[in-house]
């Protein structure tokens, strides 16, 4: 590996928005504590300026952990359900799954979160539950659409070539469906970050905590700190997914030299 492509890659990265938004996000995460005392000019009423319940890196870590763990579970469930519904044995259930997901999509996330509290109590648990429940739908929707988008002729050719059912799924269907599946995962994670923010209303520790504490304690400084960070977090993750999608579309199956 010579230095050429690496340097080239680095300079290309520098030109991507994800790099800059991500850098600002990280800088504010670690610098907010130092920056906060100097924000007095924004809040002439003299509110407390430094959020003390938890440090911002802690909040970010907790937020990311909740969303990440829930997303992994949601992806596993959503993908399995979609794969099942597109196999011969599960095809009968495809209509049911699609309808359930259409119905569930109308449920307000806050309502789902609130409904989880009576059985799961306050804290991270109902948040993870709501995140999983809500995260499954876009993943499943994307995977169903993606697997459904593989042309019948390609499937026919794969069967005719003698792929085993599993081989066809792994080497033909999933790679071809990958961009649409990834778009579903991207939506799911974005919704997850948003829902986790609301999770602080049921006691989960997330970047929503300063917002909720600020709203209930009438402290605009906390609200601002929380909103800016969580917005940057969401946008960074979303842009990051965008980069992965670009790479995926540009280089199918990791082929390095695509002549055009």
């Amino acid at each position: 590996m010579n230095a050429g492509p690496a340097a080239d890659g680095a300079s290309r990265l520098l030109r991507r928005p994800v790099f800059w938004v991500g850098a600002v996000f990280l800088a504010l995460t670690f610098g907010m504590h130092a920056l906060a005392p100097h924000l007095g000019f924004l809040f002439p009423e003299g509110a407390r300026l430094v959020y003390t319940r938890a440090s911002f890196p802690e909040l970010v870590a907790s937020h990311a952990l909740l969303t990440g763990a829930a997303s992994l579970v949601a992806i596993a469930i959503g993908l399995s359900a979609a794969v099942f519904a597109t196999r011969p044995a599960g095809r009968d259930y495809a209509a049911t799954l699609e309808m359930l997901s259409a119905v569930a999509q109308t449920f307000p996330p806050v309502a789902v979160l609130a409904l989880a509290v009576p059985s799961l109590g306050y804290g991270a648990l109902p948040t993870v539950f709501a995140l999983v429940l809500y995260g499954v739908l876009p993943v499943m929707g994307g995977a169903l659409a993606g697997l459904g988008s593989v042309p019948g002729a390609v499937l026919d050719a794969a069967d005719g070539a003698g792929f085993t059912p599993g081989g066809r799924l792994w080497r033909i269907e999933l790679p071809l469906a990958a961009p649409i599946i990834l778009a579903g995962i991207r939506t799911s994670v974005t919704i997850g970050i948003g829902t986790a923010t609301i999770g602080s209303t049921v006691g989960a520790l997330t970047l929503g905590s300063p917002i909720i504490d600020g709203l209930s304690g009438d402290n605009p400084a906390f609200v601002l700190q929380g909103t800016v960070l969580v917005a940057l977090f969401a946008v960074t993750v979303d842009l990051g997914f965008g980069e992965v999608e670009r790479a995926l579309v540009r280089q199918p199956s990791g082929a390095s030299s695509r002549t055009r």
Partner: peptide, 17 residues
């Protein structure tokens, strides 16, 4: 797309300031 990406709670609160 970016507006849509911002968590809803943050968007509500963001307008207060």
């Amino acid at each position: 797309d970016i507006v849509q990406t911002i968590p809803s709670l943050a968007l509500f609160a963001l307008l207060i300031g």
